[in-house]
Design a binder for these strands. Structure first.
Length: 638
RNA sequence: GCCCCCGUAGCCUAGCUGGUUAGGGCGUCAGCCUUGUAAGCUGAAGACCCCGGGUUCGAAUCCCGGCGGGGGCUCCA
């Protein structure tokens, strides 16, 4: 059966059957207002039978529309006989009998006007019938004719979306490169020879054409290292996190949160779902045609948040704010934010439908304050990427700045100051007029092994939402004012940070270095390998000394050869591996296989501990969340 | 969402011009080995060949639909 239109809303539903013949016989009245009829067997041949359910809100206009459609169809089939058969069982939202009969009679009238030989079975009767349907593919069809109201609502929604899209399409961008000295040159005139990654970013952003047939390296790594994996039992882009991945993710979350609080933000927590029809939110959503996850609850339609904006703005709306409180910094680690990205654009940890986004807003009194604040946040972002994730400017990530022409002309010095801070050329996208709610936005873009760019840290100056959400502060003259709002994700999505670190590690491997995660994020920081089970007690002693210092340590107590255990520790990217046997028990020094240095270093236990503490002192710590003994660990992947 | 490619034990994969019990490696389990810095030996278990339909005497293999993955387009608040 071919279904032409499906709608959950009110509509006239018609089952249309091209039949060899139909016979029916009225059996008994079902309602008092049933039509008069002859109680005998009626038979028709070579005709189109229309089983019709008239739903609430249907009217004579719809009847005409339906007959027009059906009539066109009948010409194709070369049939000119029709039977209209009132049939309640296609709907659970039926119109009242009087209204339904009116519509049915209208159908009959329009069909007659079209010159169709039309019959109608009596309304309000329980009838028995049998019929023979022709065998061709178009013989059976369901038609759903929507009421004008339903159609209008739909069209209105579609129009809104298409207008937003059109406006965005029309939006013309001009691309430049700004050098650290403030010189801005059109992108085609820039010499990229010393800035290969910038060239990749520019190409990715402007041309956006690439042809690779390859699974992104980080996808294999995230599974091999038992960090995260696809969860086919969920919606695509919603991941499962294995213990090691959950540990890494949790540490990153703690770190970004700690750094953002240190910068001066107040951590809050807001709901993950919001009323679709909340007046303020509706207006905001209208600007963003992309799709949300929608949740139904009782009579409400809710959408899952795609950032912390809603919750924080609604909170700010109800907050008493003085100019003295500004800049007011609010932070939330959204676990999760949801974006129902189109299925074709989901890629491993790079782009998900459910992700953890640190989101920090700053309410600012005026542009001067906003610019000053943005500089501070820029520093915060650099610190997180460089010190936290171990990424390097120019090597791993590039700066892109986007702004309106008007903003640039009035704030050249500020833009130049950002580029100067970066110390590398930055990609510029300049718009003639403002389309988005912001006048300036910058991002750090990570460039991966397939030459794709992904935004990590980002910040923007929002000039619209203060007013839209009715967020006000009281200025020196006791007047209510709308603040400017900075939107910043200091690190970008946490999942994407892991993607970036894995892609970087892969690149290092290609360059002949040992791939690894930063020490503070390595699930196992030190592995102790007893050469045989005779030395297990000594290994345990070493491990417990290390563990006491808040260092994640485990013991490979499996009955395997030492070579094999070393090999497996290496494939797990463990930063320090210690083999203990007879010599170690006697000498009290340890041969530490240092992954980063690529050599075995003779060290005292205290020296090793000190080195690790020195490298991780400003980072959060969590104990190992896996059994300390490898013999006790299940295998999650592979 | 559209177009293209892919889907075989937990993992990697052979077979895929249709034809006996779907072959191998890693891992798992059992046993042996008690080890000096990247893979010790032997054996066993483990496969609705992604799911559903079709073609056929016969389908992992061919066709259609779905689900999942990848790439491209598009998009990215």
């Amino acid at each position: 059966m071919e279904i032409q239109v499906i709608s959950e809303r009110e509509a006239m539903r018609v089952l249309q059957l091209h039949s060899d013949w139909i016979e029916y016989e009225p059996v008994k009245k079902e309602i008092a207002t049933a039509e008069k009829c002859e109680r005998k067997l009626h038979r028709f041949e070579e005709l189109l039978v229309l089983f019709v359910s008239v739903e609430k809100g249907d009217n004579e206009d719809l009847a005409e529309k339906l007959i027009n459609e059906v009539s066109d169809f009948m010409k194709k089939l070369k049939v000119n006989k029709m039977l209209i058969y009132p049939y309640a069982h296609l709907s659970n939202n039926l119109a009242k009998p009087t209204a339904a009969l009116k519509v049915l009679k209208a159908m009959e009238k329009y069909a007659k006007q079209k010159g169709i030989e039309v019959y109608r079975t009596p309304f309000g009767w329980c009838k028995k019938f049998s019929l023979s349907i022709k065998g061709h593919p178009l013989a059976e069809q369901l038609r759903v004719i929507e009421s004008k109201k339903t159609r209008d609502e739909k069209e209105k929604a579609e129009r809104k979306i298409s207008e937003a899209l059109k406006a965005e399409e029309k939006l013309e961008s001009f691309w430049y490169i700004i050098k650290p000295d403030g010189k801005m040159v059109p992108v085609e005139k820039f010499d990229f020879s010393k800035h290969k990654n910038m060239e990749k970013l520019a190409r990715y952003e402007i041309a956006k054409s690439r042809a690779v047939q390859q699974i992104p390296p980080h996808v294999k790594l995230m599974r091999k290292l038992e960090i995260a994996d696809y969860e086919p039992g969920s919606d695509p882009g919603n991941f499962r996190w294995y213990p090691k991945g959950a540990l890494i993710k949790s540490l990153l979350e703690q770190y970004v949160t700690a750094k953002t609080i240190e910068y001066g933000a107040m951590e809050v927590e807001t709901p993950v779902m919001y009323d679709f029809h909340h007046p303020t939110l509706t207006k905001y959503l209208d600007r963003f045609p992309a799709r949300q996850y929608v949740v139904r609850s009782e009579d409400k339609e809710l959408f899952l948040r795609f950032s912390a904006c809603f919750g924080q703005f609604l909170m700010a709306h109800d907050t008493q704010i003085s100019y003295r409180h500004l800049p007011l910094r609010i932070y939330e680690l959204t676990r999760y934010s949801f974006r129902r990205e189109k299925s074709g654009e989901l890629v491993g940890l790079r782009r998900l439908r459910a992700f953890t986004m640190p989101d920090c807003h700053a309410l600012c009194a005026n542009l001067e304050q906003a610019k000053e604040e943005m500089i501070r946040r820029f520093d915060l972002c650099v610190r997180i990427l460089e010190e936290g994730l171990g990424l390097t400017k120019g090597e791993d990530y590039e700066l892109a700045i986007r702004f309106t022409k008007d903003f640039y002309e009035k704030n050249r010095d500020f833009v130049n100051a950002l580029v100067k801070k970066m110390g590398k050329p930055a990609l510029v996208e300049m718009w003639e007029q403002r389309f988005f709610y912001f006048i300036l936005k910058w991002e750090f873009n990570f460039i991966d092994n397939l030459d794709k760019a992904s935004a990590l840290s980002t910040d923007q100056i929002d000039v619209e939402n203060g007013e839209r959400y009715g967020i006000t502060y009281v200025d020196e003259k006791a007047e209510k004012k709308y603040p400017l709002i900075l939107h910043c994700s200091p690190s970008g999505a946490i999942e994407r940070c892991i993607y970036a670190m894995l892609e970087k590690a892969y690149r290092q491997q290609k360059e002949g270095k040992s791939p690894m995660l930063p020490l503070w994020l390595s699930p196992t920081q030190v592995r102790v390998i007893p050469i045989s089970d005779n030395f297990l007690p000594y290994a345990e002693k070493i491990a417990s000394e290390i563990e006491k210092k808040d260092i994640r340590v485990d013991i490979d107590d499996r009955m395997l050869t030492m070579q094999k255990k070393v090999r497996e520790a290496e494939t797990e990217w463990i930063p320090y591996i210690i083999v203990v046997g007879k010599k170690e028990v006697e000498s009290k020094t340890l041969p530490v296989r240092d992954r980063e240095a690529g050599e075995i270093r003779k060290m005292k236990l205290a020296e090793l501990v000190e080195e690790i503490k020195k490298k991780t002192w400003d980072k959060p710590f969590k104990p190992l969340t896996l059994p300390k003994y490898l013999s006790q660990r299940p295998q999650f992947y592979g």
